[in-house]
Design a protein around this nucleic acid. Structure first.
Lengths: 262, 262
DNA sequence: ATCCATTTGTGCGTATGTATG
DNA sequence: CCATACATACGCACAAATGGA
């Protein structure tokens, strides 16, 4: 027999998932739920806290506020199209194009820092634990709302050959192409994907609601000799999706076309 | 100025992240925190609830219990190695091999069901919204602990040509190879990755602690003509990582070797 | 096997603060 | 300014789980 607050949460959750309550609708107020279930306000709040943590609702204070059922808009990020392997597009160009194609307005802000590496980055980048790296950080927004944060790490010795990396602005045709032009051609990459709960820093950066997980997407790019770049992208979990196309992309495109014309 | 419970959570979080409190260590008890910060028990519990939801700690009731700092063991799933494109391995064989290679003991249980499709599956599988599909469900455990749940959906017409799909047991060399032998060669696939908070069902299935997100991994497999399979894998977010190798896998392997021999 | 001490879990009541229309 | 919603904080009580005496 589950405790009261769980039962209340379960009933409300059902009403949300079934569609009886659709995005934008409001749950009964705390007072209404108190009366309805004949419980204390504290118990009601335990129930709604569960739904908040599941990301099903968000709370809006004020006269006309309440617990509002959240909407889920998903933006797709095509990882296998970005910067690989005969990279026609710069990664940021690719992202801009994708967002626009999905009917939204992309913006991004760049930032450059020189930092000491963390253990996780050092290992992937194949540099000493106490070395410094150039970090190109980029906040990407969709319709003004923060959507993802990307930090790209480059070994310092690379920046001597390619000083443009130290520019705190967008690089016109993308860093991948720039590196290739200077003899560092990215031949392979390894992508890692992890779901996690955000750190408080990520919460403020991405304006995450409580209960929103993030998707960490870590790409390590290799030339023939060694890793030349590690980029860590943090996606707001409820607003993003990462997609890979494997094998023959034609068969998939063909199906999509047939699908949309029928 | 953040509220009291957030300040307490922030201090405790710092001690965990800095390593002052390592996995297995216990936070001060609720009573100790009450005295230490001179707050009510409720406030202390609001603080620890945050850490619980971030997955940093888990609670153990009882005499010697407490809030224990959680350990993070990550298992790697190589998505680009599984079943594609010249598929040497069956997907489950591949998974078994990977888990063993990482020094753990894999087990899995199969289950077969015939179900009406959901909208999400119907769209990906290219079938009518009211049609039925064969669902092969598989719970994968690592060292006895549930690690991921995979549901593979096949259109019913496929099961007439390939009746083995309806077996509620493992298929020796994998369904991908079986389908290929019957003329349904999987030429391409599309993978989608999404971070989400688990449904209560997923919580019980995967024995998830509160505050643990999941990683949904959806693969749609295509023959030259159409989708033949959709598999939805739900990974416990704190115990799994999905990896893709893009481009020239050699350059990455070379670096790994050099790395491990030095 | 029993009881006890400790710790977290659930639940009640109350008061005051803050945001919004 | 007020009414209403959620947010923070206090206090209390008892239940459930766990390990040790």
């Amino acid at each position: 027999m589950p405790p009261l607050y769980r039962k209340i949460a379960t009933e409300l959750r059902k009403r949300i998932i079934s569609g009886e309550l659709s995005p934008g609708d409001k749950l009964p107020t705390e007072t209404q739920l108190q009366d309805q279930y004949d419980v204390s306000r504290n118990t009601v709040r335990l129930a709604t806290a569960l739904l908040l943590n599941e990301g099903l609702v968000e709370s809006v204070p004020g006269r006309t506020g309440g617990m509002v059922v959240r909407e889920r808009v998903t933006l797709t990020y095509h990882a296998s199209r970005a910067e690989m392997p005969h990279g026609l597009w710069a990664e940021s160009d690719a992202w801009f194009g994708e967002v626009r194609a999905q009917g939204h307005e992309p913006t991004q802000e760049f930032e450059l820092r020189i930092e000491a590496v963390t253990a996780a980055i050092a290992e992937r980048l194949g540099v000493e634990a106490d070395s410094t790296v150039a970090v190109r950080r980029c906040i990407r927004r969709v319709n003004g709302q923060p959507s993802s944060v990307q930090s790209s790490y480059y070994p310092m010795d690379l920046c001597e050959t390619v000083p443009e990396l130290l520019s705190p602005r967008d690089i016109p045709h993308g860093t991948t192409r720039l590196l290739a032009e200077r003899g560092y051609q990215q031949l392979g990459a390894e992508d890692e994907l992890v779901a996690a709960m955000p750190t408080p820093e990520e919460v403020t950066l991405l304006r995450l609601n409580p209960g929103t997980p993030v998707l960490h997407y870590i790409r390590t790019g290799f030339t023939a000799d060694r890793p030349v770049r590690v980029s860590v992208t943090t996606f707001a979990g409820d607003r993003n999706r990462v997609v890979y196309t494997l094998g023959d992309a034609e068969v998939i495109a063909r199906f999509r076309d047939r699908d949309s014309t029928e």
